[in-house]
């Protein structure tokens, strides 16, 4: 066993097992560091950088992927840290539709983000894909957190139906040559829908209910035909 690590987080002394991330160490001390892309059951990729904290280094460190180090003094709420978070949130607000992402909207409040600051900037727009009986894909609400791509691949299902279109700001989750989900290797396990934090992926039945379609009608449209057992 390697020795436990002792560090301070916002002035509070914390001792954790070696290899613990700053995010988990803070959590153990009752300090909540904001995260968007991070999910406890998936590989952390350090994408959203909202969890960036001051560790006294050249630049800030993403708490979800940075191991706690002996003697480090972490600041999770310094002015610089809050300035970075606020700006990331402001840029995000100007890019995608966050109406169904209450956690992110709450962060906007908490960090005083001016959601109209980048008004006039290009938005990431996409069509809504209604190409299978199980779920809808509305990438106008997608923040590129990669969770769906990860559960579809090595983090869970090994179905490899999803990848990316484009690059940079114009990156979007996509399938092989834009094929509809039923033409891909998707097995409709539903895990991508389960981990989506913004409502970009939504069960079709839920979406139809929201649109005021009657439950009977929904059932007619989405039920699976019972297959006869092979004799």
């Amino acid at each position: 066993m390697t020795k436990p690590i002792t560090l301070t987080i916002d002035g509070q002394k914390v001792t954790v097992p070696a290899g613990t991330t700053i995010y988990d160490a803070a959590k153990a001390a009752g300090i909540e560091i904001p995260v968007i892309c991070y999910h406890p059951h998936l590989s952390a990729n350090g994408l959203c950088r909202l969890c960036s904290v001051d560790v006294g280094g050249r630049v800030q460190a993403a708490a979800c992927v940075t191991a706690a180090a002996e003697g480090v003094a972490v600041k999770t709420q310094s002015d610089d840290v809050r300035r970075g978070r606020r700006t990331i949130l402001e840029m995000l607000a100007s890019t995608v539709n966050l109406v169904e992402a209450p956690e992110i909207l709450a962060y906007m409040e908490e960090y005083g983000a001016d959601t109209s600051r980048f008004d006039g900037g290009e938005k990431r727009t996409a069509s809504v894909y209604d190409d299978n009986p199980f779920y809808l894909r509305d990438y106008n609400q997608c923040i590129n957190c990669w969770r769906c791509v990860q559960v579809c691949a090595e983090d869970a299902q090994y179905a490899f139906a999803l990848s990316f279109d484009g690059r940079g700001f114009h990156t979007q989750i996509g399938t092989f040559m834009g094929d509809g989900m039923t033409d891909t290797t998707c097995v409709f396990c539903g895990q991508c829908v389960g981990v989506c934090p913004t409502g970009a992926l939504k069960p079709k039945r839920q979406a139809m209910l929201e649109q005021g379609v009657s439950p009977d009608e929904i059932f007619q449209q989405t039920r699976r035909k019972r297959k006869k057992k092979r004799g």
Binding site: T87, I88, G168
Partner: peptide, 21 residues
């Protein structure tokens, strides 16, 4: 930079675009 950002992390993916604009 907007053309060459890979799109992995949010600050660069969004920031290079807004900086360019």
């Amino acid at each position: 930079f907007a053309h060459e950002s890979c799109g992995k992390c949010f600050p660069c993916q969004l920031g290079t675009q807004r900086q360019m604009e």
